[in-house]
Amino acid sequence: MTTTTTRIRMTPLRRRLLVLVTAVLLLGGLGTGIVLHAAARAHRANQPQSGGPAVSAGKLTLDQKHRLTFLNTAAGPHRTSVASVPSADPGGGRTASSLKCARFYAAARTGVCLQSVTGVLKQSNRALLLDARLRTRRAFPLAGAPSRARVSPSGRFVAWTVFVSGESYSSAFFSTRTSILDTRTMRMTPSLETFSVVKDGKPYRASDSNFWGVTFASDDDTFYATLNTANRTYLVKGSLSRRTVTTVIQNVECPSLSPDGTRVAFKKRVLSGAALWHEYVLDLSTLHETALAEHRSVDDQATWLDNHTVAYAFPTDGKVGSSDLWSVPADGTGSPRRLIADASSPAPL
């Protein structure tokens, strides 16, 4: 019996085709592995962690009294959801809504939710004006990544700040845009840069002006914000009706007006050229500054829980993308205490 062996001659064309097919198969297997690995990581990130806060889905409205709303940053299916706890028991179990936000604030049955949604081709940012049941009244496209959000005490005005370029206030180069919406008329001020500026008693115009961190007074006209120009930051006092802002004092960022309207909590840069801020309270009548007992660097717009206490977010040790809410007396006494674990964007109802 004779065995015949047939040899296939490997031409240059066949050799190139073989290499191409092999490469496609290898890349296909690698791509599948990457997708499966990413899916597994996302699944683990959405699972509740043992020992974490108790979070349950439930009904949440903005007309509930004696509640503290915030964004839940704990891992699990309710991560970034608007949640709330009783003001008297902030460490207790939290109720989470289905609404997810990057930034959130609420007052007088009115809420604002800044969202950043990653799509197939690009990231979409938008602001949602919310009613008391967290239903969207209007949606507005944002020009950049969410940064700050506030609602006036009456609920009539809503403000938000976004990063048009840069990713944080510690970046060497960044640009912000701050908008204000009248929720009654739906009239929008797309940018505070359209307001007239009075600096050191004189009209001022500069192409490098940036505004952020609006906080409203109770008269539905006065507001405070940060102005950055010529590498300096200023607290400015603004008038919505006159469309003007006037500088008050230097080195003030992310102001937050007290409920009685007499003081502003803010972060102050304490090391020139570095991203190092400390929390202070400014008496608006005397311009006297009081350093608070929080000595860590806080990059947040503080929230007044009442006339005596301010709260702010601080990154959680060992948890990327998470933060805890801390509180500290507004008169410089006492010491910081952790108010709510795995939380940000506090808003007392």
Rank of each mutant, 00 (worst) to 15 (best):
T333L: 01
S56I: 07
V85A: 04
G76Q: 03
A313G: 13
G51V: 01
A172D: 14
S322A: 14
A40E: 08
L18Y: 06
T11R: 07
A39Q: 15
C101Q: 03
S344I: 05
S98M: 07
G111S: 05
A74H: 00
R138W: 10
K319Q: 10
V236A: 04
F195G: 02
S191Y: 12
P346Y: 06
P146K: 05
L68D: 08
L20A: 13
L128C: 15
R16F: 13
T303Y: 00
L20M: 14
A96H: 00
S297C: 06
P146S: 15
F195L: 12
T316W: 02
Y312L: 14
F266N: 01
K268R: 08
P346R: 02
S207K: 11
V151R: 06
T80F: 11
T290D: 01
F173M: 14
S209L: 12
F173W: 11
W277R: 05
G111T: 05
S345N: 05
T3R: 09
V320H: 14
F223S: 01
R41W: 13
P141C: 10
W212C: 10
G29E: 10
A311H: 03
R242I: 09
V21E: 09
V158A: 04
R263N: 03
I249R: 08
F174K: 09
R150Q: 11
G155I: 02
H66T: 13
N228E: 15
T161D: 08
A343M: 07
G76P: 02
T189H: 04
F173V: 15
G144V: 02
L305K: 02
S241I: 02
R177G: 10
R41M: 09
S50F: 02
S335M: 11
A172M: 10
H78Y: 11
V19I: 15
F174V: 07
T69G: 11
N125G: 03
A39D: 14
V270C: 09
A132N: 01
V55L: 12
P315N: 15
S179Q: 10
A132R: 01
T189S: 04
C113G: 04
T110H: 06
S124N: 12
D260K: 02
V158I: 04
R103C: 12
R79I: 03
